[in-house]
Write a protein that binds this DNA or RNA. Structure first.
Lengths: 166, 166
DNA sequence: GTTTTCATTGAAAATGAATTTCATTTTCAA
DNA sequence: TTGAAAATGAAATTCATTTTCAATGAAAAC
């Protein structure tokens, strides 16, 4: 299921795609890997959506551009994108790994509807500060955190009310 | 791997075990299920540790008391315990579902060392308030949240420094 | 430009945790 | 008791993820 996103970023520009591609190419060179048409196609498909994509979902999108690209390559390319900071994994806690693009994005968190799976992004400086503070207090060098809120969105609540009126 | 926990609770008392057992039995009756020796044994093993247990780890502990109890029963009993509020799932983001007992515990969160897997619990009222606030702002009825911090603990940092000195 | 060397690719197989199936055993209400 | 319903646990299944491997392709070296 593809998820809606509500946030403050316009859709990605041609310019951003070019820059992202450069980041990937530099990364490939750095770690001694090769640049390929498949990897570029996958990156472009990935950047063209604002959703939180599972490997399977991205694979389906990629196939619209090049039906020959296999699931395995998408899977491996997503790992590469995560390595060079273009993608990051978001765990929605439903057993499926999802990625979102991270290029030029503010730090944010997600609130997920447990009925329909749609999600809202929100921003909270407090959470980032908390990571620092708790790390300091317990002598951890913190690297990252995850924060998700789960609940029922307005839409689903209305649907539920309509389905079984009192 | 069993994980250390650093927190403010003493180990569970005989009295608490009795009460927890009552909670389970009431729950079983309510949903028309039966109370069995296996379920009691599993509950007791579960309460006797302060760790974040995977099904597999709990299964191994349970087998010390009764080698005949199978993985499946532990798996199913953990779900039952979660249903009646005695256990709750904690996702440490390593692909394995873990449970901790929830009986008489303050709301808390975890900071996990990504090297050794040990974890520290911490308490933060702010996070709970944030859940409320963000929910209100986006018209979600929130039910829960997850918040974990990842980093390197003091021990592992020292070990690393010793292993590859400058 | 050609060769040579590795990395890449993608189908298929493997993995591994979670979950379900099913024949047998146990619980418990009547 | 007893019989209907639930529980049990070994084995099978599911399903996302990850690895394998033979064929292909990229790019460095010649």
């Amino acid at each position: 299921m593809l998820q809606n996103r509500i946030d403050d970023q316009p859709s990605i520009s041609r310019e951003m795609v070019r820059e992202a591609q450069e980041i990937l190419h530099r990364h490939l060179k750095r770690v001694g890997l090769k640049q390929t048409a498949q990897r570029d196609t996958i990156l472009r498909s990935f950047l063209e959506t604002r959703d939180h994509l599972s490997t399977d979902e991205l694979h389906r999108l990629v196939q619209k551009k090049d039906a020959g690209i296999g699931y395995t390559t998408v899977y491996r390319t997503l790992k590469l994108l995560a390595e060079c900071g273009l993608a990051s994994e978001v765990a929605f806690h439903d057993g499926i790994a999802r990625y979102e693009h991270q290029y030029n994005r503010r730090s944010h968190h997600h609130m997920v509807c447990t009925e329909c799976g749609s999600s809202v992004e929100f921003f909270s400086r407090e959470v980032d500060q908390l990571e620092q503070e708790i790390g300091r207090r317990h002598h951890y060098t913190t690297t990252r955190h995850t924060f998700q809120i789960y609940g029922i969105c307005e839409n689903c609540r209305k649907k539920n009310a309509a389905a079984r009126p009192v």
